[in-house]
Each structure stands twice: as structure tokens, then as C-alpha cells.
Design a protein around this nucleic acid. Structure first.
Length: 295
DNA sequence: CCCCTCTCCTGATCGC
DNA sequence: TGCGATCAGGAGAGGG
């Protein structure tokens, strides 16, 4: 699933290929890809056609093509959801079965392929938030650990004393951006904290260590090209990342904990799976085991 | 504001 | 062979 490292890999690849190009033509093949844009698919096409790409930027899991003056809109925000891909293709090639939208840049095309359709494209205007210009659609998202102005103390302050389970806060993109289910589990394992533990039970230094662990694990994953479990996460050339082999707990039910050897457990949590070490990460007493929930 | 649950969607897989 | 259930989960709407 694309989390911060994976989205950053895509951003880098896109930036290299599309910076300086002009959108000659756009197509929205699946109206759902434009569902967040009130003017709809035709409006989206109109907004980006003729736009000149000056850069590809990112905050957390949101990335955007930034457009220069004279373009119909400031930016095209892209969220990959669970399975979105931004593929750089040569014009006239095959169209993937799950192709949802495309940008024709003349010498190349950008194909938005998304099997599970949780991803979206949204034209957006830039606004200034806390001294940085970001698209309106991203204004509510916190800075992520790769941001030069990321402030871990601020994140600690946002978490400290809260009654919410710590994993909820790690996944809250308005608290710290970029962390998804995989890296949340890995960061919690690194500091020996169970995700269901209320943040209020954690000291400031422990919260600080958790944020540093999340930063570290995402940095390591980025260096490996991100985490790919299947063909659903690939870079702009369609190639996978290699961090899945380095994961300590995520997706490793019943395998030995790399630290103590206890078999990794899987539990339902927030309508998804959480992986942890039963010995290194004791479950809080107050919150009992949550039943796995069906659809 | 804060906290939490539910819903959107497709396709692989599994049991019967 | 088919069919229904289950699972994967990011983000935002909405209820309390």
C-alpha cells in the first residue's frame, strides 16, 4: 500500500519525467477518479488541459503536479489510495484494464491505474498554510517526517495526554502525515508499544521515540524503493520496491519476532489488521481484545 | 473540537 | 464449476 516512502518514490519518478512538460490532453476514463472535484470529469479535463508542469510535490501521502502561470489551475492533487499507480508510458501503448485517467504530455503519457479505486485526482488552488504553499485539498494535512520543517515536538504535543489509542493517532494524517498501517505497526514494534495503548499512558520521551522510529523506518523503506507485496505498488516505470523483506512484524503472523523470537500475532483493529509481538508489546489491560470485525 | 464508526471499491482466495 | 464470504485499507462523512 502506498504510504509515505512509496508516494515519495512515485513523486521522484514523476518529477523527473513531467517537469517542464505541458498537458496537451487529458482523459478521465473512470468518473470515480474525479469524484472529489465538483465540476466533474469534464471539468477536470478542462482545468488541466494546457497546464505547464513546474514541479511535482508531496506532503504525506498526497502528491501534486504544480502548474505554472497561465494554467487553468494551480495544481493537480493525486492520492493513490490503496492501489493507485502513476505510470509513465509511451503514447499509443496498451491501456491497462484499470486505467482511470491519463495525461498526454506529448512525448509521454502519465497513466493513473487504480484497481481498488480509492485513489483520486483533484485540481486545486494553492494556499499558504503555516508559511508553506500547498493545495487547498492538502491544507488540513500535517507536515511529514521528510519535511525540512517537520517538528517532532509538535507531534508529541498533539499526542500527549490524549485518550485515543496511539495507533489511531499515528494514522491520523492531521497529526503526523505519511504513516499508514504498515509503518505504524513497524514503528510501534520498534519502541515496544502496543497500538491499542492510550496515548495518555505514554511519556513524552516515549512518544518522541515512537515518532523517531516512524521517521527511521520510513527513511529505510524509501532507500529500498518502498514496500511492495504484490503488483499494486510500483514506481512510475512499473517496478516494485524491496522493503517488504525488511519488515519485522507487518504481514508476518506466526513468524518469530526478530527481537525475542515469540510468534508475531495478528489482531483486528480499526477494521484492519495489526501485527505485533506479544512479548515485546504488551496489550493494555483496560482495552480488552477487540473482536475482528466483518464487513 | 474530539473521538470513533462506517462506507466507498475490486479482485484474489478459500471453503463448500 | 460456481458461489458466497472474507480480506486488503486511506480518508472523509457524520453521529455522539
Amino acid at each position: 500500500m502506498p504510504e509515505l516512502p512509496e508516494v515519495e518514490v512515485v513523486r521522484r519518478g514523476l518529477d523527473e519525467h513531467v517537469r517542464g512538460r505541458t498537458v496537451a490532453r487529458a482523459e478521465v476514463l473512470s468518473p470515480r477518479a474525479a469524484r472529489r472535484y465538483v465540476p466533474g470529469p469534464a471539468g477536470l479535463v478542462a482545468a488541466v488541459t494546457g497546464a505547464h508542469v513546474t514541479a511535482v510535490s508531496r506532503r504525506g501521502k498526497y502528491l501534486w503536479l504544480q502548474f505554472g502561470d497561465g494554467s487553468g489551475t494551480d495544481a493537480l492533487v493525486v492520492h493513490l489510495g490503496m492501489s493507485g499507480q502513476m505510470l509513465v508510458r509511451t503514447p499509443g501503448g496498451e491501456r491497462h484494464r484499470h486505467l482511470r485517467a491519463l495525461l498526454d504530455l506529448g512525448e509521454s503519457e502519465v497513466h493513473f491505474v487504480d484497481q481498488r479505486t480509492f485513489g483520486w485526482w483533484l485540481p486545486s488552488q494553492l494556499i499558504e498554510v503555516d508559511g508553506t504553499f500547498v493545495p487547498e485539498a492538502v491544507a488540513h494535512i500535517a507536515r511529514d517526517p521528510l519535511d525540512a520543517r517537520f517538528d517532532p515536538d509538535r507531534v508529541v504535543a498533539r499526542m500527549y495526554g490524549r485518550p485515543s489509542e496511539i495507533k489511531r493517532l499515528l494514522l491520523d494524517q492531521t497529526v503526523i502525515a505519511g504513516v499508514g498501517n504498515i509503518y505504524a505497526d513497524e514503528a510501534l514494534w520498534r519502541v515496544g508499544v502496543h497500538g491499542a495503548r492510550p496515548a495518555a499512558q505514554l511519556s513524552r520521551p516515549k512518544l518522541r521515540a515512537l515518532i523517531e522510529a516512524a521517521t527511521a523506518v520510513m527513511g529505510e523503506a524509501l532507500a529500498q524503493g518502498g514496500t511492495s507485496f504484490d503488483a499494486l505498488y510500483v514506481d512510475v516505470d512499473g517496478d516494485p520496491g524491496y522493503f517488504s523483506r525488511a519488515l519485522a512484524v507487518y504481514g508476518r503472523e506466526d513468524e518469530p519476532c526478530p527481537r525475542c523470537g515469540a510468534p508475531i500475532r495478528r489482531e483486528g483493529f480499526m477494521n484492519r489488521s495489526s501485527y505485533s509481538c506479544p512479548r515485546c508489546q504488551s496489550r493494555p489491560r483496560s482495552a480488552g481484545p477487540l473482536p475482528r470485525r466483518g464487513r
